[in-house]
Design a protein around this nucleic acid. Structure first.
Lengths: 101, 101
DNA sequence: GAGACAGTTCGACAGTTATCGAACAGTGTG
DNA sequence: CACACTGTTCGATAACTGTCGAACTGTCTC
């Protein structure tokens, strides 16, 4: 499996981050990733088809929200929290807190 | 001109707010509205066709971001900051601060 | 090597969205 | 009343998006 590209956080426009977070499935993924780092894709929303999830992973990766590293046949997903906090201070925390229902 | 509907802020999902903010034109409108309340639509982005802007106003209204009140033949636009802050604490401030380039 | 497993890519489809000109509805002014 | 002005509504169109099955790539295990 070829290496997936992660954008430099400084190249990510704010609107891309907001768009990535504006989908309920992706927001759910981000919330789970915020709780537990280094989770494989299979740990998320197993009732959703893999191809659909893979699409969302890509959107999240491209928006700089998630970093995926290969580990055997899995990919471990981690929220790029520190980088995001540095570029968009308070944004992620506010979204996560607001998403707590 | 008939009265425009503004949703109760508690009925607005977080994803709707994020989606409304994820468009560059709408984000620009919100930023301007954050600086000056009670601005007529004509004060915003005059180079964009009126019908396009009206569409964006509607999205912003439906997402609970902007309140429009009729004043003569104009509509004055005001960011629903206090309500948004109560429902999504810190979100708007983080977005506005991040949008400062 | 065969097969199970994790995740991506491809192609197709339906639904949504942004854009814009033209027509329209209220409102103020002469 | 006629006209200018502000903003909405109505198509129409092109582009984008979410969803999903099928095929594929790479990895691990037996």
């Amino acid at each position: 499996m070829r290496q997936l590209k992660h954008p430099d956080i400084d190249d990510v426009p704010l609107t891309a981050v907001l768009h990535a977070l504006s989908d309920p499935v992706r927001l759910a993924i981000v919330r789970m990733a915020a709780r537990q780092p280094d989770q494989p894709c299979s740990a998320f929303l197993s009732q959703i088809p893999k191809s659909t999830l893979s699409h969302h992973w890509r959107v999240l990766r491209d928006a700089g929200l998630i970093r995926q590293v290969s580990a055997g046949r899995e990919k471990l997903n981690t929220l790029r929290k520190d980088e995001l906090d540095a570029r968009f201070p308070g944004l992620l925390d506010a979204v996560l807190a607001s998403a707590e229902h």
